[in-house]
Design a protein around this nucleic acid. Structure first.
Lengths: 226, 226
DNA sequence: ACAAATTTTTAGATTTGCCTAAATTTTAAT
DNA sequence: ATTAAAATTTAGGCAAATCTAAAAATTTGT
């Protein structure tokens, strides 16, 4: 019915970027924003947007930005599913660390084979989250965003488990490794310094001080959800 | 030292084809042969050969065919290593059948990451042969062709184990499945019909008749090697 | 509201990998 | 040894994805 299959690698990368920038493709995204994230020129973006628009993957009106159509959204979710499943594979089966997976997954996500990705899903026992705590869409694009909060935004004395990172750059992840912060750690917010927003936390027993920047890139899951 | 890494997918496919056609790149390969195997036009082949020649991957003299340089050979072996390791992965870990692996491995072989392929090798416990019985080059391109013979060429009463196929097309492999012929089967050649070269064989107990075409695409390993 | 700044698009090139058609070289046949 | 056939290369073009520079539309500041 739809030839989701004959998309080029470049088209797929644009779709993915529009999805990420537009909060899952619902919002209008600016040409410049796409160009910046993809390290390309705005004029190249315009060209590609026209092409994607032809193919009914994006809604486009000149000068008004783009958003994903329902087909575009489905496509994005399928690429993200592949990306995140491969990340799990790399960490679980090939002993990659969480800061090494992104680059390789960027390549693997473009491999075309339904059977491959479904079998991979099975091999990994149908994981629901990737190594950075981001949810993995199921076969039909089903997506359950986990209920979680930024560490920088919860009240003092909140207790929770570290379940994700907002910034998943290698730099940040290596910093976390160096400081013994990992998904699964038990965290309690002891004190917040109003002056600079830094936090004093207790993490798996230890006590440590983290800056606001760090805290605003760590997600925790508390028990006070419904 | 050498930028084996910035090869395009197309360049890699040409190198692989030249390797296969020229018995591991040693012999001169005709432009037309490459074009036919790659389902492209001879003129396109000439273009690409010039480009590869520039990069010192092939030896080329106009009208005289091409062969791989030592760098080209090394490149080919690295691609073949990846292709075959991925095939093993698909069969061993993802339950693909041996006739389903080729197409996907053709995509996976172009993924660039040394760490990925070395880890995969480890996950698979350093396999020496792929699902069709072809040898997998090691990290350094080391290659040990297994001592084996075409079933069509061994004398009557020869006993051996089926260790490989010459034709690994899905059609042939499915035919073998249908007739219960698989790698690892014990085979004894009972009789050869001189008229059409067909064979009467005993395979894992059963008795069966196979045509010359079939026999000339099955490798067995006998015990009479040195 | 209107000029200035910013954003976006258009126009025209470039590179890669492919094509067709025509020319050239090699090989095969008599 | 020629000539016919086959193989190979050259010449000229095309589509995808990018770029630069210039033009057009939108947004912003006062």
């Amino acid at each position: 019915m739809h030839k989701l299959y004959l998309m080029t690698r470049s088209e797929e990368n644009y779709i993915k970027t529009i999805f990420h920038l537009g909060r899952q493709g619902t919002q209008d995204v600016a040409t410049n924003a796409i160009a910046e994230l993809m390290e390309t020129k705005p004029s190249s973006v315009t060209d590609m947007i026209k092409k994607l628009s032809e193919k009914d993957l994006v809604n486009y009106k000149r000068y008004q930005g783009v958003s994903l159509t329902s087909l575009g959204n489905k496509t994005a979710l399928s690429i993200i599913r592949k990306h995140r499943l491969w990340e799990v594979f790399l960490v679980e089966k090939l002993d990659f660390s969480w800061d090494e997976v992104h680059e390789v997954a960027e390549q693997l996500e473009h491999i075309k084979s339904d059977k491959l990705i479904d079998s991979l899903d099975r091999l990994l026992a149908f994981p629901k989250f990737d190594p950075h705590g981001d949810p993995i869409p199921d076969k039909n694009g089903g997506f359950k965003e986990r209920d979680r909060d930024l560490l920088s935004e919860v009240p003092i004395r909140t207790v929770g488990v570290c379940v994700g990172v907002k910034d998943s750059s290698a730099t940040f992840l290596k910093f976390l490794d160096k400081n013994g912060i990992a998904l699964g750690n038990q965290i309690k917010v002891m004190e917040r310094e109003e002056f600079d927003g830094s936090l004093n936390i207790e993490i798996d027993g230890r006590n440590m001080q983290i800056s606001h920047v760090i805290a605003s890139n760590l997600y925790i899951k508390t028990n006070d959800g419904i």
